[in-house]
């Protein structure tokens, strides 16, 4: 009856049989809801984002929120040590998580965390990258495509100039950073498959 909870925004990776799905969901949402709200507040601060229609803002946030959260929390996945830190502050080794059934999505998160971490971004560079991640998310349901494209182009230009100003001799850094965008799309698709299987028992 115990339940495995793969997302590190949960207190820990296993919940006892005595706890109902509703109880598990409510404690998870105490972390998840503020984390999503933080992404929305972050998006409001992106120059030009609030000029999009309300519906387009919602659509972009719906398709981009998990990708932004994956960047925001990627340091919970320590690729070097092969551990994941859950909300209780404890780290769990890969061996334990494997036994619990965690597989390709976990491996992909480790790989992503390693690649992004190796770029050594400053906080403001990471924030600008997260803005690019959000506006580069899937555009199904977007009504004003041109406005989103212009927003994306402007943010990518800003990211390129910030990075080349900071590290003029590292011309490979910016392309490496943009290569993380398809990684995030893949992670998001894998994560969506898991979400489809997620149910809160009535």
């Amino acid at each position: 009856g115990a339940k495995v909870l793969a997302c590190p925004l949960n207190a820990c990776p296993v919940s006892g049989a005595e706890r109902t799905s509703q109880e598990i969901w409510e404690s998870f949402s105490q972390c998840f809801t503020p984390a999503v709200k933080e992404v929305v507040e972050f998006a409001k601060g992106i120059p030009g984002f609030q000029e999009l229609s309300q519906q387009d803002q919602v659509m972009l946030l719906k398709s981009g929120t998990f990708q932004v959260l994956m960047v925001r929390f990627c340091t919970l996945f320590n690729a070097k040590e092969r551990t994941v830190t859950f909300l209780n502050g404890q780290t769990y080794p890969l061996s334990t998580l494997r036994v619990l059934g965690m597989g390709s999505l976990l491996d992909a998160m480790f790989e992503f965390s390693e690649k992004l971490g190796s770029l050594g971004l400053e906080p403001d560079e990471m924030a600008l990258f997260m803005a690019v991640v959000l506006v580069s998310a899937d555009r199904s349901g977007i009504s004003d495509m041109q406005a989103v494209e212009q927003l994306q182009e402007g943010l990518i230009r800003a990211l390129r100039s910030l990075i080349s100003r900071r590290r003029p001799d590292d011309s490979a850094l910016f392309p490496k950073l943009l290569l993380r965008l398809p990684d995030l799309r893949t992670l998001n698709n894998m994560h969506s498959d898991k979400l489809l299987a997620f149910r809160i028992d009535p």
């Binding site: 809801t33 507040e41 719906k62 998990f66 979400l195």
Partner: peptide
């Protein structure tokens, strides 16, 4: 194509946060 994020009520959280009134408990 059903919406995976709907399992978590993501759109509801986003809409409320955009309108700035997430203070009251989600229903």
């Amino acid at each position: 194509y059903n919406d995976p994020a709907s399992n978590l009520g993501l759109e509801d959280i986003i809409r409320k946060a955009l309108m700035g009134n997430l203070e009251e408990r989600p229903d």
